[in-house]
Design a protein around this nucleic acid. Structure first.
Lengths: 143, 143
DNA sequence: ATATTTTAAGACCTTTTTATCTTTTATTAA
DNA sequence: TTAATAAAAGATAAAAAGGTCTTAAAATAT
């Protein structure tokens, strides 16, 4: 559904949203171990997201990754957007060029609702909104 | 969403369901050109599906691929099942090991019902059922 | 029987994704 | 100002996905 890269990144960003702050930056290694994904690979992803201002980082001692208030107010879809791009949500599930409600592909109506719902959920809700539910114990991260 | 392999295969199988019969077998090349996908790659996929009895084939002159009545009565999900497997539909969208209604991941309740719907649509409807809609002009294949 | 047609099988190549390692640069605390 | 720390950058590598090509085998028509 999503690439491993996007899954790891969503997990990591929500972990940072819950656990980090300007005063409590967290290293890539700690995040990776907490959510159970390969450290160097996640580090690359976090660097990428930082460069694109989806998350924040600071070098040096007491440095690490964290989410600013601005970062937290971004929609969760921006994580996927900067890693996989949005083509997955834009294109026909069968890869047909001219698939639409007018000229639907054979599985258009079976699959389109799923695709749209998922996209809307990620597009309409902020990182912070997802983090709140984790803090409340309504939803859960990692394992 | 789906691998290119699965997309090509679904397209090809539905093309065969609409265009082929025991009396009118169709070569891999013709199918590939009709649906606009790479010929040798599609040939591999068709051979695979034939070996697993999802579609039928016959060598020699007047040979080619076709769907028997038995093939047409299979559910469309069997195409995906024999090419990608079903893990995509079984696993948590965020890749979490213990994601369930009890311990939902942050996007579980927004995405899970639709993922299930998509799976059910492909699992409950036969290849022939999808082909009928193409024949009726309700849905469209290739471009 | 033989030539022809077309799938079957498998070797091979390319690109993308996933993953790792090493070196450099920035920051901070002492 | 120096040592320690941690991200940034980049080189490298393994694995998977996507794609191609060649040869063998089977079926058919003549």
């Amino acid at each position: 559904m999503l690439s491993s890269a996007s899954k790891y990144a969503i997990n990591a960003v929500l972990y940072l949203a819950v656990e980090s702050s300007e005063d409590k930056k967290i290293g890539a290694k700690e995040v990776a171990e907490a959510i159970g994904v390969p450290t160097p690979f996640l580090a690359k992803l976090l660097q990428n997201l930082a460069k694109k201002n989806v998350i924040s980082s600071l070098k040096g001692p007491k440095g690490g990754f964290f989410l600013s208030e601005e970062n937290k107010s971004l929609k969760l879809i921006s994580v996927v957007e900067h890693i996989d791009g949005l083509s997955k949500f834009e294109e026909c599930v069968l890869g047909l060029k001219n698939c639409s409600n007018d000229k639907p592909c054979p599985i258009h109506f079976s699959v389109q609702p799923f695709k749209n719902t998922m996209f809307d959920e990620l597009s309409n809700n902020t990182i912070e909104a997802f983090a709140v539910k984790v803090r409340n114990g309504e939803t859960f991260l990692h394992y």
